[in-house]
Simulated assay, not measured.
Amino acid sequence: MENVMQRSLIVLGLVIALVGLAWPWISKLPIGRLPGDFMIDRPGFKLFFPLTTMIIVSVLISVILMFFRK
């Protein structure tokens, strides 16, 4: 059990470091500005609901986890 937790934390740390290094390129992607991402901007109120982005991220995570289970 300890080895699994140690490996998981190491992998999580590496993923966070890689995302941090790739952030200049990741920030240029249109994620969060896709059709279906709703923004309501009124005086004194701002709401951003990234519906399409959440669906895409959910599908990607599900596919990645499906590959790791096998």
Rank of each mutant, 00 (worst) to 15 (best):
G44A: 02
L12I: 11
I64Q: 03
L34F: 08
W23M: 11
L47F: 12
L12R: 07
V4W: 07
M39A: 13
L60N: 05
Q6T: 10
L21N: 02
M54N: 11
P43L: 10
A22E: 01
S8T: 11
R42N: 07
G36H: 05
M54K: 08
L9V: 02
G20M: 08
T52H: 01
L9F: 09
T53I: 03
V15Y: 09
L21F: 14
G36W: 02
I31P: 00
I61E: 08
L14V: 12
F48Y: 15
R33P: 00
T52G: 00
L65S: 12
L51D: 06
G36E: 04
P43Q: 12
P24S: 05
A22K: 01
V19C: 10
A17V: 15
K28G: 04
F68C: 05
K46C: 04
F49Y: 14
I10V: 15
V57D: 07
F67P: 00
D41C: 01
V19T: 11
P24Q: 04
I56L: 15
G32H: 06
F45Y: 14
P24Y: 05
I31A: 11
S8Y: 07
F38V: 14
T53H: 06
L60A: 14
I64S: 09
A22F: 09
L14N: 06
D37N: 12
G44V: 03
L60I: 13
I16E: 06
L47S: 04
P50D: 04
I10A: 14
L9A: 08
L51Y: 04
V15T: 13
P35C: 10
S62G: 09
V4G: 00
W25I: 13
V59N: 03
M5Q: 09
Q6G: 02
A17T: 11
L18A: 15
P50V: 01
A22L: 15
W25Q: 12
T52Q: 03
L34N: 01
P30G: 03
K46A: 06
Q6P: 00
V57E: 12
R42K: 13
G44P: 00
L34K: 02
I31L: 15
G44W: 02
F68A: 06
Q6R: 14
T53P: 01
L9M: 14
I61C: 08
D41S: 13
M66T: 11
L12M: 15
F45D: 00
L21C: 08
P50M: 04
A17Y: 06
F45L: 15
I26E: 01
R7V: 12
M5K: 10
F49T: 08
G44H: 03
I31W: 14
L14C: 09
V15R: 02
F67L: 14
A22Y: 02
L47A: 14
M5G: 00
V63Q: 11
R42E: 10
M54V: 07
I10Q: 13
G44N: 04
